[in-house]
Amino acid sequence: MIKYIRKAVVSISCFLCFMLVLPAGVCGQSRPMSTSTSDVASLEGNVVDADTRQPIPGATILARTESGKVSGEQTVPADGAFHFTLDPKQTYVLVTKASGYQPAEERLAFTSSYTNRLYGKLIRLKRTDTPTPATQPATSRQENAPRPTPPAQTAGAATATNTATVATRPTPPPPLVAKTGETTQLRAIQFVQSKPDLLPEAQPALEQLLAFMQNNPTVEIELSGHTDNQGNFDKNMALSKERVDVVKKFLVKNGIKARRISTKGYGPTRPIASNNSEETRRLNRRVEMTVLKQ
């Protein structure tokens, strides 16, 4: 009898060991699959004259991936507006053309794969240097001179269009200007609270910084991240570095060489205001750019 009892105990022990090493899926429990929160994003903007900032109706704009796949092509209407639905994980090349203007190509990358909208994008085309035919100047003067006149003919429509444009496509920030050794606060580059994820509202300021780097191809900069003193010190130090690394990644993704950008995270160690109230702590949460070399 004792012999049979021992055999039963051994059998039960082996069965329990077998159950313990079974994969979770065999027992009917599977780990949830993570999915992207955003598969598509919209790109909205206007094609305008680089000098007059007036819309260029009839301009064509094409969006293609870096591999050459065309994701969309449009001919812009009278207000110069365009709208594309794109994959935020891809980097694109925007090719814009218009009669009488130099064609333009521009690389575009979304701030992250979670961005679902980029608006207020301005594509500025420069007129060609080729002289216009003898019959054209009179027409050009007529087009330039009556600019105050069209509002009298279609005042209601023009006012409505302009109002809508201001409401949905805010004026981009002015060009960034900085000298060697000068530190500039980039306050408009904002992040999700306690995370290194950029807010969609940061896009115009990022493009402003990108334009500065493109227009000054020899400039080298340092991006420094700063936080307030709330929370864990070490986490704040790490967070401030992660945030400026995200900004650098955006610039590099849009064609700026990585060697031109260094990043440092100072956490709460360099406050510019008191940390005693939320109003002043907000001033300490910032990204700064210092020009190291022109």
Score class of each variant (00 low, 15 high):
residue 103 P to S: 03
residue 153 Q to E: 05
residue 161 T to M: 12
residue 121 K to L: 12
residue 201 E to A: 11
residue 179 K to R: 13
residue 214 Q to A: 14
residue 259 R to K: 15
residue 86 L to P: 02
residue 119 Y to A: 01
residue 193 Q to T: 13
residue 71 S to Q: 10
residue 202 A to K: 08
residue 75 T to N: 05
residue 289 M to L: 07
residue 103 P to V: 07
residue 294 Q to R: 15
residue 13 S to E: 12
residue 37 T to A: 15
residue 143 E to P: 00
residue 263 T to V: 04
residue 111 T to C: 11
residue 253 K to T: 06
residue 57 P to E: 11
residue 181 G to F: 08
residue 148 P to R: 15
residue 57 P to L: 05
residue 281 R to P: 06
residue 163 T to K: 13
residue 72 G to R: 00
residue 194 S to E: 13
residue 195 K to S: 15
residue 94 L to R: 01
residue 67 S to R: 07
residue 200 P to C: 06
residue 30 S to P: 01
residue 70 V to Y: 02
residue 6 R to W: 11
residue 191 F to L: 12
residue 132 T to Y: 03
residue 166 V to N: 12
residue 211 A to G: 02
residue 179 K to M: 14
residue 151 P to V: 12
residue 131 P to T: 00
residue 255 G to I: 02
residue 74 Q to W: 08
residue 263 T to A: 14
residue 113 S to R: 03
residue 129 D to T: 11
residue 114 Y to Q: 03
residue 15 F to S: 13
residue 186 L to I: 02
residue 178 A to H: 03
residue 275 N to V: 00
residue 7 K to E: 13
residue 281 R to I: 06
residue 281 R to N: 03
residue 272 I to R: 12
residue 53 R to D: 14
residue 219 V to D: 07
residue 137 P to S: 04
residue 250 F to P: 13
residue 61 I to S: 08
residue 249 K to L: 14
residue 241 K to T: 09
residue 197 D to H: 09
residue 214 Q to T: 10
residue 183 T to M: 04
residue 261 I to K: 03
residue 182 E to K: 07
residue 184 T to K: 15
residue 207 E to P: 04
residue 187 R to E: 10
residue 179 K to Y: 15
residue 141 R to W: 14
residue 264 K to H: 01
residue 71 S to R: 12
residue 41 A to G: 12
residue 117 R to C: 08
residue 23 P to E: 00
residue 28 G to I: 01
residue 57 P to D: 07
residue 173 P to D: 00
residue 197 D to Q: 06
residue 121 K to I: 02
residue 43 L to P: 06
residue 55 P to Q: 10
residue 84 F to A: 02
residue 235 K to M: 15
residue 141 R to D: 14
residue 220 E to G: 10
residue 235 K to T: 09
residue 15 F to C: 10
residue 190 Q to T: 12
residue 82 F to K: 01
residue 55 P to Y: 04
residue 182 E to A: 07
residue 151 P to G: 09
residue 111 T to I: 14
residue 282 R to L: 13
residue 26 V to P: 07
residue 91 T to N: 07
residue 266 Y to V: 04
residue 157 A to Y: 12
residue 97 K to D: 05
residue 74 Q to V: 13
residue 74 Q to E: 14
residue 7 K to M: 07
residue 251 L to P: 02
residue 186 L to F: 06
residue 120 G to D: 03
residue 221 I to P: 00
residue 292 L to C: 13
residue 139 T to M: 06
residue 237 M to C: 06
residue 122 L to T: 01
residue 152 A to F: 12
residue 205 A to E: 09
residue 220 E to D: 06
residue 124 R to F: 02
residue 155 A to P: 11
residue 236 N to K: 03
residue 142 Q to E: 10
residue 135 T to E: 15
residue 53 R to H: 08
residue 74 Q to S: 01
residue 183 T to I: 04
residue 164 A to Y: 07
